[in-house]
Design a binder for these strands. Structure first.
Length: 379
RNA sequence: UGGGAUGUAGCCAAGUGGUAAGGCAACAGACUUUGACUCUGUCAUCUCGCUGGUUCGAUCCCAGCCAUCCCAG
């Protein structure tokens, strides 16, 4: 009987995943992961729970424990606080300091959930790990493929785009063929009271929902600068630091109406980190928000290399529609993606994840440089 | 100082003698394992620069004052 270590988070998804694996006949060991400590990590500004009697992580732990008890499964606990800080959070901050917009959860998967946790599982004689991810694994011969989950609205393959073939082969995805609504239904049937109606967690993994700017201020000093209209070079206002904004962002600029002009809202379309200038464009369809090709580094593919001139689909941001692109290889870990037509707000630091039109996820990389009409966009 | 123009919520901006459109911003909620986008809702009632007057009733009419801008000088 194969043994699986299941990451039980205290949410409904991993709880039902545990049940399914058990029902399928796996020998399941549950484990609660703790990767962050607000106090050890000096996280106070804008922390909504810093004064709570019970920290939300402990509530999650208790909820997870109840699930394990209900399902009659062994329950462990492990901390990866140092690993998270060293491999995920440090990278996250470095990217922000460069003015880019990283996706920490992709690296959390790569380095913590599918690496540190996998090693811990192996040390405990487990064959596989599993969690509550919505994704599908398909084995054909000795090859393993990753597909989008049946529940496309919950599909999380985007976050798995940096895991290696070995990591993929070590993981089971029990929720790949189940709709979220059915997950809730199963939780109710099992009377998993601690999680059945719990709201889905959002926000950065292990950090949670936050006023993002306040959170970053704990680690990156605020440096005021000018907000400049890219069309006319007018100074429209001031920002608290160029790194607090991402491309395409509308909220938080505080720019009101201007005499004699129709106010369409202002959107971030570029940044000059050295001069600390934030560039904005008026209206959501301004040309400056678009780009037509990009360079992607850190390319990670689960299987064979993709030939030049292949047309496929890319997701540039989580929960955004897949967009048609044509791929060209630069070297083993760098590709160029030419867009079918100009796309809005493709942002350096975010992941570009590659799909075939049947939902097969080929892998992905990190958007490094973005171009429009042959010119490098200045971010 | 003379002539002209304007003064409506944080910013733009409609408006009528009969009791204040809209947009932007902001805030809240929804959505969401990044950051965003998006959607929904809230947002002038000792109020329409101030003070008087006309009127049943004025933000809109009249007078004076104040402030700002433009042209003269």
């Amino acid at each position: 009987m194969s043994k699986v270590m299941l990451g039980l988070s205290g949410g409904v998804d991993s709880a039902v995943a545990a049940y399914i694996l058990k029902k399928q006949g796996y020998d399941v060991v549950c484990c609660f992961m703790r990767n962050r400590d607000s106090f050890a990590n000096n996280d106070f500004l804008g922390n909504p729970t810093v004064d709570n009697d019970i920290c939300p992580q402990e509530k999650d732990y208790n909820d997870a424990k109840k699930v394990a008890e209900k399902l009659n499964l062994p329950f462990l606990r492990i901390d990866f606080i140092k690993e998270y800080w060293d491999n995920v959070f440090t990278y996250f901050l470095e990217e922000y300091k460069k003015g880019r917009t990283p996706n920490p959860d992709i690296f959390c998967n790569k380095y913590i959930k599918f690496d540190s946790f996998l090693k811990f599982a192996k040390e405990n004689n487990c064959d596989y790990i599993a969690m509550g991810h919505y994704a599908k694994r398909v084995d054909v011969g000795d090859k393993t493929y990753l597909y989008k989950a049946k529940d496309l609205s919950k599909d999380q393959t985007y976050f798995l785009s940096q895991i290696s073939t070995y990591q993929l082969k070590s993981c089971l995805f029990p929720l790949g063929d189940i709709l979220k609504s059915d997950v809730r239904k199963i939780a109710h049937e099992l009377n998993l009271e601690s999680v059945e109606d719990k709201k889905d967690s959002t926000g950065i993994c292990f950090i949670g929902e936050r006023n993002f700017k306040e959170f970053l201020k704990n680690y990156i000093p605020a440096t005021q600068g000018e907000i400049v209209d890219i069309q006319t070079n007018r100074i429209l206002g001031h920002h608290d630091g160029v790194m607090y904004y991402t491309l395409g962002q509308r909220k938080g600029l505080g720019i009101g109406g201007i005499k004699g002009e129709v106010a369409k809202g202002w959107f971030v379309c570029g940044k000059d980190v050295s001069k600390n200038i934030l560039y904005v464009a008026s209206g959501s369809e301004d040309e400056h928000l678009f780009s037509d090709y990009c360079l992607v580094t850190n390319l990670n593919l689960y299987n064979e290399k993709i030939p030049d001139n292949t047309h496929l689909f890319a997701k540039f941001r989580y929960r955004q529609q897949d967009l048609g692109v044509t791929l060209f290889n630069i070297d083993d870990t760098t590709i160029k993606l030419i867009f079918d037509k100009p796309y809005k707000s493709v942002t350096p630091g975010q992941a570009a994840v590659l799909y075939e039109d049947d939902g097969k996820c080929l892998g992905g990389g990190i958007i490094d440089k973005v171009f429009y009409k042959g010119k490098l966009k200045n971010f």
